[in-house]
């Protein structure tokens, strides 16, 4: 089983991207499964269910979904093996982007919406800089000139990544992403897999655990 992590802001086009990847994989007779970690339960399992893609949606109401993703990695991995998956995708929508959910050896893909501002990539620098593949989504919604400017900005932030744009409606441009995921050797999950990003020093009292939401925190 191959493992890939897809990170990106809410509504950045991660699910559409993964659906197209799963379609390409299925053509080669390979099964894709998705373990999705989100701040709120929003019914994404139905999107995958409609395409017969095995999926677990895990809500992380108390801590950042990217953090939660690291905590449930073992569960996700065992689930993928039990399902007999060829490709396991961890999909996670982090909150503050001071770090990223990307792990040392696993293919890391970052989705950025073409409708986000031009400063957005720099504001989620650890996510863009830590990825092997940076995908500009919703490219069909913006003019060609804007797309060229956006892609240039992404390449500037991460010159070694494969930077591409995809059309989430038709799936054009998603084939190379699928090839990259499928073409990797099988992944073995080791304890203490190193994170690619440096972690922030502390947690904000607004978001940390029970007791959050009180002005003075814990």
């Amino acid at each position: 089983m191959k493992l890939a992590v897809v990170g990106g802001v809410h509504a950045s086009g991660k699910t559409s991207l993964i659906l197209h990847v799963a379609r390409h994989a299925a053509r080669q007779g390979l099964t894709t499964g998705v373990y999705k970690i989100d701040a709120m339960e929003a019914g994404d399992d139905q999107a995958y269910g409609r395409h017969d893609i095995p999926a677990v949606v895990h809500a992380a109401p108390d801590i950042c979904p990217d953090h939660e993703a690291m905590g449930v990695l073992d569960d996700a991995y065992s689930w993928g093996l039990a399902k007999g998956l060829d490709l396991l995708v961890i999909e996670t929508a982090g909150l503050c982007h001071r770090c990223s959910p990307f792990l040392g050896r696993f293919l890391s893909i970052c989705a950025v919406s073409g409708l986000a501002g031009i400063l957005a990539p720099a504001k989620m620098r650890p996510l863009v800089e830590g990825a092997d593949i940076v995908v500009l989504t919703r490219s069909e919604m913006i003019s060609q000139a804007e797309r060229q400017v956006f892609l240039d900005r992404l390449r500037e932030l991460n010159p070694s990544a494969l930077v591409m744009h995809v059309d989430g409606l038709t799936g054009e441009g998603t084939l190379p992403v699928a090839r990259a995921m499928i073409g990797r050797p099988d992944s073995v999950l080791l304890p203490l897999e190193p994170l690619r990003a440096r972690l922030p020093m502390g947690y904000c009292h607004f978001c940390q655990g029970p007791g959050a939401g009180r002005e003075l925190g814990l």
Binding site: G117, I118, S143, E146, Q148, V149, F150, L151, D152, R153
Partner: peptide, 24 residues
Amino acid sequence: RISQAMQFFLDLTVREFVKMHAQA
């Protein structure tokens, strides 16, 4: 390509946009 798009989304001025596009 000049598409049928009639709107820009980028948060840039015309001058900044042209400059960045030329750099790209």
